[in-house]
Simulated scan of single mutants.
Amino acid sequence: MSSTVTISSPEQFSQLLQSSKIVMAYFFSSNPDSHGPATVYQQLAGTLSKSDRVTFVEINIDDQKDIKDAYNVTTTPAFFYFRDGVVVQKVESASKPQLRELVTRVVRDATGQAEASAASASASTTSQATWRGAELPRGYVDVTDQIESQRSELLNYDASCGGVRVLFDGSKPSALSGGKASAKDWVESDTDEQLMLYIPFQSVIKLHTLQITSLPPQEDDDDDDEAPMRPRTIKLFTNKPHNLGFDEAEDMAGTQDIELSEKDWNADGTANIPLRFVKFQKVTSLVIFVVDGDGESEKVRLDRVRLIGEAGEKREMGKLEKIGEGSE
């Protein structure tokens, strides 16, 4: 007897994505040629399914057109690997060896027996080895690796410190490691306290959380007369084709405005900022405008920026959507 679950509605599929940590989805059509390695899939499902842990489902795209469209399924058979409701990987027109390899990796990931290899195999999990100043929200992943760093741009930064790329560095900030850094791995503003950061993405992103790390030195540790500040007021803008000017950004309504206070920063100097998820569903670029800092200095400091959410397909290939997702 097969352990696969036949999906009869988008609501049923959405519920399974929420209740089961791992979901493997097999998309097929009524055309017999589209069934591919269905027998292998069902055999693996019978062996590897675990209640509320690993679930195998079958979806007939002729009957479930809403799900087909939501996940942009254009070729069958297609296999999608979900973890915590998020698409990790998909394989289309898979051969039996490809399917076995994918499912084996899924099971190892679910049981925690090969976390490191699963991380290197999936673009969505490569960030597991990356330092973060705050925990990930459940069901979301670090999508900082989706940034097009070569096209990112930072305005009004002090060239004697780090540039835009240090903000996305996966290493632990030197300020938390003790001692002085051989190179300044942080950003400071230059002529005043404002910074303008333009971040384009390789794929269409759903953004859930912004994590900003800022570790200004203590006054007695700073070589300058004036220690830099943490950001206080931040404006976010989405889907701009290029960076904004400071005057332009000040006059423009942001996608979200943020006010930070001392209580928002944790022991690692990181502010974990939840975003209005409904406004950050189809993001191709993000502008972070640091309007002012929390103090009297004329400099603001940023050590790291991490972006948390979901990454879809590369933009030229279209985007994967998740069924039944609510706003937060």
Rank of each mutant, 00 (worst) to 15 (best):
W131D: 07
F168N: 01
T209E: 15
Y157W: 08
S122H: 13
V166N: 10
G179L: 01
S171L: 12
D225S: 14
R165Q: 10
D224F: 07
L167H: 02
D158Q: 06
E219K: 14
L136N: 08
A118I: 00
E219S: 11
Q98K: 12
T111W: 14
T191D: 09
A118G: 14
V143Y: 03
D109Q: 13
S95P: 02
Y198W: 06
S122E: 13
V141W: 05
A183V: 11
D223F: 04
L176D: 02
S124F: 08
V204M: 09
K96P: 07
R138I: 06
Q150L: 11
G112M: 06
E101W: 05
Q194D: 04
D190T: 02
V143I: 15
G133Q: 08
K184H: 10
Q113D: 13
D158K: 04
G139N: 05
S152C: 12
R105E: 13
Q194F: 02
R151A: 12
D221P: 00
Q211P: 00
D185A: 11
T209S: 13
V164G: 02
L215K: 06
P97H: 06
I199A: 00
Q113H: 12
R151D: 11
L215T: 03
V141G: 01
A181W: 07
D158N: 14
V204F: 01
I205K: 11
D224I: 01
A181I: 05
D185R: 09
Q128L: 09
H208T: 05
A129L: 11
V166D: 10
E115I: 06
A94Y: 09
S203P: 02
L102W: 03
E115G: 07
P216Y: 06
R105N: 15
A110M: 12
A129V: 08
K180G: 10
Y140D: 01
S182P: 11
I199V: 13
S120W: 04
M196I: 14
S93M: 14
V106A: 15
D222T: 03
T130F: 15
R132Q: 10
D221N: 07
M196D: 08
A227C: 10
V103T: 09
T213W: 04
P200Q: 01
D142V: 03
S120P: 00
V107D: 10
D190H: 15
I147P: 05
D109L: 13
S214I: 01
S189K: 08
H208Q: 15
R132S: 10
M196Y: 05
A118H: 09
G178S: 05
K172Q: 14
E153A: 10
G179C: 00
E101Q: 15
D169A: 13
Q150M: 08
D221E: 13
T126A: 04
T144K: 03
M196Q: 12
A183W: 12
A175S: 10
W131S: 09
S203Y: 00
Q211W: 04
D220R: 12
E188C: 15
D109Y: 07
H208F: 03
S174N: 09
Q194P: 00
I199L: 03
L176E: 02
S171E: 12
Q202G: 08
R100C: 12
D223Q: 09
E101D: 14
S160C: 01
W131V: 07
V106K: 08
T213F: 07
D142T: 01
V143H: 04
S160A: 07
